[in-house]
Design a protein around this nucleic acid. Sequence first.
DNA 1: GTCTATAAGCCGATAGAC
DNA 2: GTCTATCGGCTTATAGAC
Lengths: 186, 186
Amino acid sequence: MDAAERLITSTQELLWERGYVGTSPKAIQQRAGAGQGSMYHHFTGKPDLARAAIDRSATELRALAEEKFAGPGSAYDRIAAYLRRDRDVLRGCRVGRLTQDPDVVANPELREPLEETLSWLRGRISGLIAEGVAAGEFRPELVPDDVAAALVAVVQGGYVLARSADDPALFTRAVEGALTLLGGRR
Amino acid sequence: MDAAERLITSTQELLWERGYVGTSPKAIQQRAGAGQGSMYHHFTGKPDLARAAIDRSATELRALAEEKFAGPGSAYDRIAAYLRRDRDVLRGCRVGRLTQDPDVVANPELREPLEETLSWLRGRISGLIAEGVAAGEFRPELVPDDVAAALVAVVQGGYVLARSADDPALFTRAVEGALTLLGGRR
DNA sequence: GTCTATAAGCCGATAGAC
DNA sequence: GTCTATCGGCTTATAGAC
């Protein structure tokens, strides 16, 4: 693994753990085992490197989600598989957490991959809801885009609850509550 | 308003805007119009002042929520009133956002008010769900604690969605989706 | 109570040698 | 490509005068 690559993965880790404001070039360099010169040779600065790292994390997240969305079973089954997928809950969401970073949200270059990822997620789930409604699996009054937003929000908010109490079980509670509300094969 | 008071409210604002890691004593002092000496006279340091500010924000949040929970109408009505209450959505949650701050979560003194607040919120909503189930207003299979966690998560996650897209409407989508799923007076 | 002075170290970056 | 040197400014205090 070359230096540029190590810088990106180290930045991914630090952004996940400490956010953008809490991550310094120095910390990135130390974790990557690279010097100042190396970092500023490969990237124009902290925002440039962060963008590369966020893009990488976004791609990883989509792949993990798609694995469940494309799995077997009914629309409900696939949504449930996504919501219940193995997560290191107390670490939070590698993409969603950056939403709380003022310097990320204020910078269109850095916010773009966040918006794209969460938008894709909503769209993917919305399609499954529509599919389930058409199949008579879900109540017909469900508005796919709204329900999808609610489900994505439950995941993001589940992390918040879990971290506030230092207890992953609260994430599970929120997800199970949402699945009961969704109520498949009524 | 004396200096100690101005320091607390300034810290509340900055924690809300920039989080704990992103808020420096210097920035607090400038916003409060107070000097170094003043701040370190009234508080032992940044964590001490932050704790006072977080306690204050937590109290404010509970009061705003209780206003809706204690309002008129059925259980569904009161939950809907809470979920739909006026919010400056793009600012995020003054309490929930601190959950993403590694230095807050790592410090039991700072995490405590977060846990208490979100726990109280879940408990309050759980009680309303149980009330609604008993009244035949909600489906009997709803598990109050789980549904309450899901609804609190929708609010916290709604902020995430809205901030990711710089669009408050996504918060509204998530909340309306959740209310449809909850489906009062079935 | 509030002020100013001082501190060691980090922040994000640039410059130029190798 | 990577290294070291240097930069002005910020960080989180502490000390002591007023």
